[in-house]
Simulated assay, not measured.
Amino acid sequence: MHRSRVYALLIDTPEAEAAQATAFWSAALGVRSEVDPQYPQFIGLHDALPGIVTAVQSVDDAPRFHLDFETDDVEAETARLVAIGATEVTRWQECRVLRVPGGHLVCVLPVESPPEVFDAQAKTWP
């Protein structure tokens, strides 16, 4: 058995437009933004969606939205999502990038939330 939950909604934005997109989303959602010093390609939109990390992600690709699933077993969660129709696209560090039916991307990553948040919100899968 393993556990997982939706951890983040990422607003993927071409690098040249990330600052403008961040300004727009901050104003539209009425929240402050902050660059993650450890991962400067992520600009957090604090408290935009309570309980879900929301951020603009500077990418070298087309604009889109994607979800991140956090899990206590990346391999098992990847296998679960593949079994219901996703296909693995690539790997980045410990993360797996999947394309789901409809063409959207999702990422599967190790637990990032504080343990009490993950324990309270994660679903258990067989």
Score class of each variant (00 low, 15 high):
M1G: 14
M1S: 15
M1D: 06
H2L: 09
H2K: 12
H2E: 03
R3S: 15
S4L: 14
R5T: 12
V6H: 06
Y7I: 02
A8N: 00
A8F: 00
A8H: 07
L9V: 10
L10H: 09
P14C: 05
E17K: 11
A19L: 13
A21P: 05
A21Q: 11
A21E: 12
T22F: 07
T22S: 12
A23S: 10
F24H: 14
F24V: 03
S26N: 04
S26C: 10
A28E: 05
L29G: 03
G30N: 08
V31N: 10
V31K: 05
D36K: 05
D36I: 13
D36V: 12
D36Y: 07
P37E: 07
Q38A: 15
Y39I: 13
Q41N: 12
F42D: 00
F42M: 08
F42K: 06
I43F: 01
G44N: 13
A48F: 04
P50H: 09
P50E: 12
P50I: 02
P50R: 11
G51H: 08
G51T: 11
I52R: 08
V53A: 12
T54N: 01
A55P: 00
A55D: 01
Q57P: 00
S58G: 09
D60H: 14
D61L: 03
D61W: 11
A62L: 13
A62G: 00
P63R: 08
P63W: 03
P63V: 02
R64P: 00
R64M: 00
H66Q: 10
F69N: 00
F69W: 06
E70P: 09
T71I: 08
D72S: 14
D72W: 12
E75I: 11
E75F: 10
A76N: 04
A76M: 04
A79V: 04
A79M: 02
R80A: 13
R80N: 07
L81C: 01
I84Y: 07
I84S: 14
G85E: 11
G85L: 08
A86Q: 08
T87I: 09
T87P: 01
T87K: 09
E88G: 12
E88P: 13
V89C: 07
V89N: 11
V89Q: 14
V89D: 13
V89Y: 06
T90S: 15
T90W: 08
T90Q: 13
R91P: 00
Q93P: 01
Q93L: 14
E94V: 09
C95R: 13
R96V: 13
V97W: 08
L98A: 04
L98M: 06
L98P: 06
G103D: 07
G103M: 01
H104G: 07
H104Q: 14
L105G: 02
V106I: 15
C107S: 11
V108S: 07
L109R: 10
E112C: 09
E112A: 15
E112K: 14
S113R: 00
S113V: 07
P114G: 12
P115I: 06
E116P: 00
V117W: 06
V117C: 05
F118C: 09
D119L: 11
D119S: 15
Q121F: 08
A122Q: 01
A122V: 04
T124W: 02
T124G: 09
